Simulated assay, not measured.
Amino acid sequence: MHQNVTTATGHAPELRSAPAYRTVLTHDADELARNLTDWEQCYDQMTAGAFHGALAELRLPRMQVFREEISQSVRQTCRVWPGALWFGFPAQAGAIRINGRPLDGDCVMVRPGGGEFELLTPSSHVIYGMVVCRDVLAQAALRSACGVDWERMQAAEVLRVDGEARMACMEALAAALAVSGAHGGMLPAGSEQQLLAALLGVLDCSGVEPAAAHSFQRRQKVVARVRDYILAHRDQPLTVPDLCAIAHVSRRTLQYCFEDVLGMSPTLYLRRVRLNGVRRQLLDPAARRQPIGAVAAAWGFGSFSQFSSDYRKLFGASPSATRM
């Protein structure tokens, strides 16, 4: 995964004495992933068409607020800095998955720092994010007498929350981004405490969703086993029977696992992951001298003409245009 970090120690980022605000506009999903400060991320574009992404980010002392907008469906592998908690507020309910679990209704996603998690976001998607150092949030909760089960929070993926509190928190995040953007990154005094209060308003009336059913966890493991094999053997021209043998399941079971966890067939997933791998390598300055055909072959594409056609359909541009 790409690292965009201020420290290589594996600890929380250094404290910042003043807010910092910036925006990013890009036509490449993976470039958007690289631009979220202090995260390790990798984005794969999953739906066909030109990509447009926008990021607005506000960095505060021991807190980060951002708004991300994307035009195409993206598979995101993410890790936030250790010692923090990430909370994700999708602007539209439904169609997003965290570690394969679909969201519905009044929910907020949560994951602790230092651990990898995966999102599958739909096309035309907007999400607000808030990352807070865990000790800062715990101290704020103690001061406001907010009862939070931190042990369950650390293990949670989805929180069921009050709809009005969720909307109020999203509005607070949007307002902070708008004000800081209009005033050179500056915020009025007390803004950080107001953001913490808005988040605690969500957490105070939340419930941790139960862990996924054992049957779903088994399907997650099948998908993970196949995914890891695909990435470790990227030059092999894999077929569905090959993937079935790797996962020790029938063709029907493999299809069902992928449809249930990722919402797509294993064949489509394989093709999309490999096309994104080629694009990532074509954009890498270190691979500038490699012929496009050699890069495609290294990702398991035997027919250059079929690869080129599939690439243009997914990204809206030819492989050669990617390098221009």
Rank of each mutant, 00 (worst) to 15 (best):
E57N: 08
C146K: 10
G10I: 08
L120K: 03
D38G: 03
L238Q: 14
A224W: 03
P285N: 09
S250C: 06
A95Y: 13
L283S: 10
G277Q: 02
C146Q: 07
R152E: 13
P122K: 09
E31H: 14
C257K: 01
V158D: 00
L282V: 04
L270K: 11
F216Q: 13
D149E: 00
I96D: 15
M130Y: 15
G181N: 02
L314H: 01
G53N: 02
E40V: 06
T6C: 06
P188F: 03
P90S: 02
C244G: 04
S123M: 02
G293N: 14
V131C: 12
P266W: 04
G302L: 13
A212Q: 12
R279P: 01
D310A: 12
P291N: 12
A213Y: 03
G83W: 01
S250A: 05
D235N: 11
L282K: 10
A247K: 04
T37H: 15
K221S: 11
L32G: 07
H2T: 07
D106N: 07
H125W: 12
T253N: 08
D135M: 07
Q255D: 03
D149K: 00
C244Y: 06
R219P: 00
L238T: 05
Q306Y: 05
R252L: 09
V74A: 05
P112E: 11
H52T: 11
Q139Y: 06
L231Y: 03
R79C: 14
H233P: 06
S309P: 00
P188K: 02
A189H: 07
S318I: 00
Y43A: 13
A321Q: 14
I246L: 02
A145P: 01
Q193M: 08
D104K: 08
A296H: 04
D310P: 00
V249R: 15
S265K: 06
L120H: 10
V261M: 06
A296Y: 04
A247I: 12
L159I: 02
D104V: 06
A138R: 14
A33D: 14
V110H: 04
L55F: 00
R280C: 01
R289A: 11
G129T: 05
T37N: 13
R234W: 10
R79P: 01
G115L: 10
L275E: 05
N99H: 13
A141M: 04
I98P: 04
D242F: 01
C133K: 12
L55D: 01
Q193A: 09
V223R: 12
L15T: 12
I98T: 13
Q217C: 13
L15P: 14
L231M: 09
F117V: 12
P285G: 05
Q220W: 01
S305A: 11
G316E: 06
T23W: 00
S123N: 04
S318H: 00
